[in-house]
Simulated scan of single mutants.
Amino acid sequence: MPSAAEVVVVGGGLEGCAAAWQLTTRGVTDVLVLERSTVGSGMTGKSSGIVRCHYGVPTLAAMAVYGTEVFEHASDLFSDGLDIGFRSCGYVVGVGPENVEALHANLAAQRAAGVQTETIDHATVAELWPTARLDDFAAFAHEPRGGYGDAYLTAQAFAAAARRGGARVAQGAGVAAIETDAEGVCGVRLGDGSRVASRQVVLAAGPWSVALAAPLGVDLPIRVHREEIILLKPGVPTEGLPVFSDLVSLQYVRPDVGGEILFGNSDLATLKPADPDHYLDRADDAFVDMAAAKIGHRFPGLDDAVLASSYAGCYDVTPDYNPVISTVPAMPGLVVAAGFSGHGFKISPAVGRLVADLVVDGTSSDPRVPEHDLRLARFAEGDLLRSPHPYVGAGEMR
């Protein structure tokens, strides 16, 4: 363990490793990533891996566009022939009558942010998802470049690229505290009592960021929500199926590489509080029953489907369901990247780039991603980052 580093990144998940990689591309090579377990072993490994640019917040849409571009060119960017699990199967979103106007407004804003998206009709969706019931949808949109990926493999790719750029990644190196002096951040103290001096610390520890920030007088308004996922053996071929976001029944489904179908719940109106160190890591019976009802309604053609497995992870959720990627004026040298609220995978390359910008320049290099939108201070100021055109019933995730 080095005694000092120009930049210390706390957390070896997607966002921390993306930040380390992007810092090296900016010429900052004395970077040390500290991960308490192994790279991608926290909530990164529990991601459902959806890739979409369909956001009502233009900043998030632009970040997802950049993320998609990185995923599409992963082999060139990281290692020749590398497979990070990205599958560009397309992304379909369907809405009810009450959300048609919002859909069209959001599509216009997304196109302005660089998203390739279009409206499609019921007949086209029926061809894409032949087993789906579609009569209660009023409109659909389609992103041909959307799809899904593997967050764990992607984190590994970011970490490997960071190492090639000169960064060091220390696993089994849990941080007990971020240390400060009269000038601001001055380093970190590890669980074994050793210290690493640094005037730049990036806090990217997911739901564990809150406890590390609190002793500094930095209040991260983050709640921890337990998110459950189930995998079905559908009994029908899944090849060619796109990701389907159902904003009528509030669910999302996607094919998985083994021929299974992954199901997740889009209704976050009521959160399930959890301790990220101690929680049930599978779907409970109530969730399975709810999923069965939603899937049975939407996909009557899957009448031979059976439950294959389930798992659960935790979201670090902010009051506006959008992340904090921010310097902290009261604590010079600290950059926070936390509170991703379920959006972290698809925007992780852009998160890393913005973190690197904040460390090096103090401002964003992408005019489509103003750092002001994602500042921590917005919560105290009552200036939450909200979609101008929210979807009724699904505003939390859009």
Rank of each mutant, 00 (worst) to 15 (best):
R226V: 03
G13P: 09
V335T: 09
D192L: 01
D285Q: 14
E69C: 09
L203N: 11
E35G: 07
D135R: 10
Q171R: 06
G42P: 06
A159Y: 01
V100S: 08
E227K: 13
L231W: 06
A308N: 10
V328G: 05
V169T: 11
V248N: 10
A377I: 01
P319S: 09
D373K: 00
G393C: 12
G174C: 06
T124F: 02
F340I: 08
A139N: 11
R199V: 05
E260D: 12
R368E: 13
A350R: 07
D121W: 09
P367G: 05
D373S: 12
L212H: 00
A213P: 05
H278S: 07
T59H: 04
M397A: 10
D135L: 05
E101T: 14
V95D: 07
V236I: 14
V253A: 10
A176Q: 15
A182G: 15
G339I: 12
A61H: 07
F86W: 04
E72V: 04
V248R: 00
A377D: 12
A5V: 02
P2S: 06
G382D: 01
E15W: 03
L220N: 03
K272L: 12
V306H: 06
P2Q: 07
G184C: 08
V196M: 03
A204M: 03
P329D: 11
G206F: 10
P323S: 07
A20N: 07
S326C: 11
A176I: 06
V359N: 12
P388D: 10
M397Q: 15
K272S: 15
L262H: 03
M290G: 05
V369H: 01
G344A: 14
G146A: 13
A20W: 03
R282D: 15
N265F: 07
P390W: 12
V243H: 03
K46R: 14
R52W: 06
V360C: 13
A173E: 06
S198V: 02
P237N: 07
K346F: 00
H122D: 09
Y391C: 04
L128C: 10
V188R: 03
M63F: 14
Y55F: 15
L14V: 02
L354N: 01
G12M: 06
A291D: 11
I178C: 07
I261Y: 01
P370I: 04
M1C: 00
G90R: 07
Y55L: 04
L384Q: 11
A167E: 05
V33Q: 02
D289S: 10
F299R: 00
L241D: 06
D303G: 02
P319R: 08
G13E: 13
V288A: 06
V9P: 01
F86Q: 01
G13M: 09
V355D: 02
L34M: 02
R298Q: 11
K46Q: 08
V306P: 00
V336A: 04
P221M: 08
D267R: 03
F263T: 04
G206H: 06
G172I: 02
G184E: 01
A151W: 03
V28S: 05
G42I: 11
P388V: 10
F379W: 11
D30E: 10
T124H: 09
V9I: 13
M43C: 05
D275P: 08
Q200R: 15
A338L: 06
